[in-house]
Nucleic acid binder design. Sequence first.
RNA 1: GCGGCCGUAGUCUAGCCUGGAUAGGAUGGGAGCCUGCCACGCUCCAGACCCGGGUUCAAAUCCCGGCGGCCGCACCA
Length: 512
Amino acid sequence: MGEQILKEELFEKVTSLAERRGFFWQSARTLYSDAPAGYWVYGPLGTLLKRKITDIWRKEIVFKEGALEIETPLTLPIKVFKASGHLEHFFDKLTECRKCHTRFRVDKLIEEQCGVKENLEGMSDEDLMRILIEKGVRCPRCRASNWTEIKHFNLMFTLQVGADAIEPNAALRPETTQGSVVEFRKTYMVSRGKLPFILAQVGRVFRNEISPRRALIRMREFQQLEIHIFFDPDNTSDYDRKLKPLLNYKLRFLRKEDRETGKISEITAREALESGYTVNSLITYWLVIYQKFFNEVIGIPAERLRYRELIEGEKAHYALVHWDLEVYTEDLGWVELVNNAYRTDHDLSGHQKVSGVDLSVDVGGRKLMPHLYEPSIGLDRVVYHVLALSYREDVKRVWLALPRHLAPIEVAVFPLLSKDELIFRAKQIRDLLKSEGFHVFYDEKGSIGRRYRRMDEVGTPACVTVDYQTLSDGTVTLRDRDTMNQVRLRLEELPRALRRFLSGASLEELVE
RNA sequence: GCGGCCGUAGUCUAGCCUGGAUAGGAUGGGAGCCUGCCACGCUCCAGACCCGGGUUCAAAUCCCGGCGGCCGCACCA
């Protein structure tokens, strides 16, 4: 199987196949070689795959969990990010130690070593630099006192909205959350909400990353599938009930104390909840739901998944507790797929303070500021890992063993030979399957073997071949991508058989 | 953003050190022939030196800058 080679070069093989076959590639490069990094195009197959993942998330999570999906603008007033705390954390002034090349935030250095707190934010670079020199601020790492000039890092894209705007007054959102938080009050009202109140958003977000790398893994513009659960921290009884049948489910955690050994603890939902580790039944439930979703629906083996507990300094500024759901591949190691943050009332309270609008809700005559728990999927990373974990090769062929329900092309139809009578019949069968709602691909070029290989490479689970026997008795062969085995089926039963096959039945089961 | 390595068709690669005439090959792609089930074979076609500047009679090749890629550091709110 060439396992050794596979592990080392998986990333390159997957991105190369993705470009060759039209899953994804780097934006604008064909025409402009100096186009900035971090922007990626989804080709026809990639778009289909991404849509399938999104749709299955809608079906399995949004719909089943009673979330209301909304769409909010990509552009938001800068005030929103002041209230959320992003502004403070997004515009850093950094300096670098000339001796050990480590970087530090200027305000932190001065705060820590000079005890100064006020007015640092409004201070000019010259003044800050003067303080660094006059107070002899030392590098916390190597004790040197030789700083480079101050550099600005702006991690949000700002905009001047309005033809006469000079100063930035808006920004592209770095997460969809703020849209949900800002519209919480209105949405809650129009949908006659009660707690827990769940919103969902699918959409693009923008981060001015310092060094975008590794294709879909770190981009400047990417997509999130987010769930925003507003709840009463003192009453999660709905979730006590929902969690009950799942109490024995084993969650996989990398606890902060096991950071160095990398030991993963399998802890049942019951233990996690009762020990207080996962705070409450609501958070515990959602941790279970997402691990199950990625394991059972997206098809990632459980041993490749873990929740990594983030420690102080790693956690976002808004989070009280925070786990990253991560996926493992041999060449990229553990990569974050879902950011699970318990944001408490950080966001709503922040907006209430800045806007002056009361954002509390009435619960049985009691005024309450809802808390927010947010599992946020990085969709592009999911797309990459679905492809990477499906990648197979042996001496004969390369194929994607995609979960059948995620495959962009569901079935291919081929005439065995490019002869008019076979082509005519094959096209009829293609149209029949299209009218039955299948995503069908038709091909008559090249040998039959070559056509099977082409479909293998894009993960098409089923190939239907029309031969001379089809013309005489109305049967076709159905080939399984993974085993390369075939069964012969009557045309009348083909749509039903195909449907069963795509939802997981084996070829043997189809002919029973 | 810093340091190291690197940049030739969709992909992989020869040529670069030591400057020289239509930049070679493989694979993939298109058109056709052949072909009774797993990348057969044959014919034809299209496809590249990351961008800009410099040195030179002459630059894929040497020099400078930019952009990009990988790895490490930092960053990842």
